[in-house]
């Protein structure tokens, strides 16, 4: 009998002790919780709102499309601000995917984009790279995406599979065989090939 009594007395005590313990834990819960700072909950962007309002700039815009001669052309910039009728951009990059295969990429620190004219002038030291293994450098370059155009206004220096090249100008034109696209170094070209290097 005593074993049963003890068991039932134990259960009786537990029936009282457990709810009390639960109550105690619950009440301390709110005391130990960290204080919540509503201010820090929402991170604000650290951008100068006035500057954005004043300049109406666009960040990382991209223009592009497919030209009449089937070239897929995309132009992007880090940031662009209106300057007169056109836009003045920084960190410009242009990619031309040619229909017969091959890709040409052009990058320059600055440039002017004439959206209605569907053209842009890249300046400040332009670098052109083509999948045919040519890396070309020049001062300024004009590109357009009505008919795919790449035209340098100044002399170019380049390195290619054949060696180092200097030329008066460089132009992308569409009169290779079968209407393929051709990168033409013109107005006098000089290539120096060093065998064995």
């Amino acid at each position: 009998m005593s074993r049963d009594d003890r068991y039932s007395r134990l259960v009786l005590w537990l029936k009282v002790a457990f709810p009390l313990a639960a109550l105690a834990i619950l009440s301390t819960l709110f005391m130990v919780a960290e204080t919540l700072d509503p201010e820090a909950a929402i991170p604000y962007a650290e951008v100068d709102v006035e500057q954005i309002m004043r300049e109406q700039g666009v960040t990382r815009p991209t223009f592009g499309g497919v030209t009449q001669d089937g070239v897929q052309i995309a132009l992007g910039a880090e940031a662009v601000r209106p300057s007169g009728a056109a836009y003045r951009g920084t960190e410009l990059n242009v990619t031309l995917d040619l229909p017969q295969g091959g890709r040409i990429t052009v990058v320059s620190p600055e440039g002017t984009i004439d959206v209605p004219g569907e053209a842009a002038t890249l300046d400040g030291g332009v670098e052109v790279e083509s999948t045919t293994g040519y890396r070309v450098e020049t001062q300024t370059l004009r590109t357009a995406w009505s008919v795919a155009t790449l035209e340098t206004d100044s002399t170019v220096t380049a390195t290619g599979p054949g060696g180092d090249i200097e030329a008066g100008r460089m132009v992308l034109s569409a009169d290779g065989e079968g209407g393929g696209h051709v990168l033409v170094f013109k107005d006098g070209v000089r290539l120096v090939y060093r065998p064995g290097f």
Binding site: T131, I165, A167, L172, G180, H181, V182, V184, F185, D187
Partner: peptide, 10 residues
């Protein structure tokens, strides 16, 4: 040296 050098991109 020449007047022009054309490189077929395909």
């Amino acid at each position: 040296t020449a007047d022009s050098l054309s490189v077929d991109q395909a």
